[in-house]
């Protein structure tokens, strides 16, 4: 099973009302369980086949091994607990649709698209994600107010990684 497929599964199950999901094929077993809307989806990949399971567990934790250029930072792992805490409130998460570099502003000298406290509409551009000179303007997709910016300018973000928390109106 590919990392992409596991990510896709997590995303689909996250969005669905499914509380528990088990998939078994060719000695690979994936087991996901949502503890009743308290914490975010926890993906447990049982290492039935080590090869398949190992990269998956590495990848599921955002940032661990794929941060390319920046020196290894200590700050990043702290993001996860923060998200979990916020998850209990009814905040909208704007997530990254692809792996790439997060840009808070259209150019290095320009002010950021949005900052904490800004009101956004569904079509407000909140950031750009770049991969291989393909630029993706991310829209808020909800009316509300930016409560938190979860990533730094220039940081590598993973597929599905939360970028902003928005308090919907």
């Amino acid at each position: 099973m590919k990392i992409q497929e596991i990510r896709e599964l997590i995303r689909l199950i996250d969005q669905s009302s499914i509380e528990e999901f088990v998939y078994e094929h060719d000695g690979t077993k994936v087991h996901m369980k949502k503890p009743a809307a308290v914490a975010p989806v926890q993906a447990a990949v049982t290492p039935a086949v080590e090869q398949a399971a190992k990269p998956a567990t590495e990848e599921v934790k955002p940032q661990a091994s794929t941060q390319p250029v920046a020196p290894p930072t200590e700050a990043k792992p702290q993001e996860l607990p923060k998200q979990e805490a916020k998850n209990t409130e009814n905040l909208h998460k704007i997530t990254s649709p692809m792996v790439g570099t997060f840009y808070a502003a259209p150019s290095p000298d320009a002010p950021p698209y949005v900052k904490v406290g800004d009101k956004v509409k569904t079509d407000t551009v909140v950031c750009i994600i770049e991969a291989m000179k393909l630029f993706n303007e991310i829209e808020a997709e909800v009316n509300g107010e930016i409560v938190e910016v979860l990533v730094e300018n220039g940081q590598l973000v993973e597929y599905g990684q939360p970028l902003f928390l928005v308090k919907p109106e």
């Binding site: 020196p71 730094e152 220039g154």
Partner: peptide
């Protein structure tokens, strides 16, 4: 050499 906003490698 790869240059990004956050550093050079």
């Amino acid at each position: 050499v790869a240059r990004t906003l956050t550093g050079t490698m």
